[in-house]
């Protein structure tokens, strides 16, 4: 690892070597021990980290009364929204739900195969609703 590579790692991963992947951190520590340029790069990164830490850390307090405002605005949950969210939170749920009737149809077809009685009802339905009699030669007066 060179000083420039160390700088690149410091920019990407920050100045805390204990949060780095262990192999890269070990290489970086070796370089920092041996090279003045690497030590300088490392010190600069640590200084920026500490400056950010001190500037951004604070005992910040939210606006007084905000908790009350939020708690007063709690509303009843819409039960339908929960159902919609259940579907929306993953890809497989709507897919599985759409496939369910198909699977149910196959299962029913497997359990209850076609019988002679089904054919009887099929013929009955055809005769009952068939109204294009002119296409049948036996109904043709000519």
């Amino acid at each position: 690892m060179t000083a420039d590579e160390l700088r690149e790692h410091l920019d990407r991963l920050g100045g805390r070597l204990d949060t780095w992947p262990s192999a890269v951190a070990a290489e970086a520590r070796t370089l920092i021990e041996r090279s003045d340029a690497a030590r300088s790069v490392y010190r600069e990164a640590r200084a920026l980290d500490e400056l950010l830490q001190h500037t951004l850390a604070s005992d910040h307090q939210a606006t007084p009364g905000l908790e009350r405002r939020i708690l007063n605005n709690l509303t009843e949950r819409d039960p339908w929204q929960a159902v919609i969210d259940w579907f929306a939170t993953s890809f497989w749920r709507p897919m599985a739900t759409a496939a369910l009737p198909l699977a149910l149809g196959f299962a029913l077809g497997w359990v209850f195969p076609e019988s002679e009685q089904d054919e009887f009802y099929e013929d009955l339905a055809t005769l009952t609703f068939y109204d294009a009699y002119e296409t049948y030669p036996e109904f043709d007066d000519e």
């Binding site: 951004l56 910040h60 307090q61 939210a62 606006t63 905000l66 908790e67 405002r69 939020i70 605005n73």
Partner: peptide, 26 residues
């Protein structure tokens, strides 16, 4: 109570506006 200050601080830094961060935190 546990998280409001932290999230409000984050939103204040993002928006730079206390009223916006109040609304967004709510």
């Amino acid at each position: 109570v546990r998280h409001l200050n932290s999230i409000h601080h984050y939103l204040l830094r993002l928006t730079g506006s206390r009223s916006d961060s109040d609304d967004l935190a709510q």
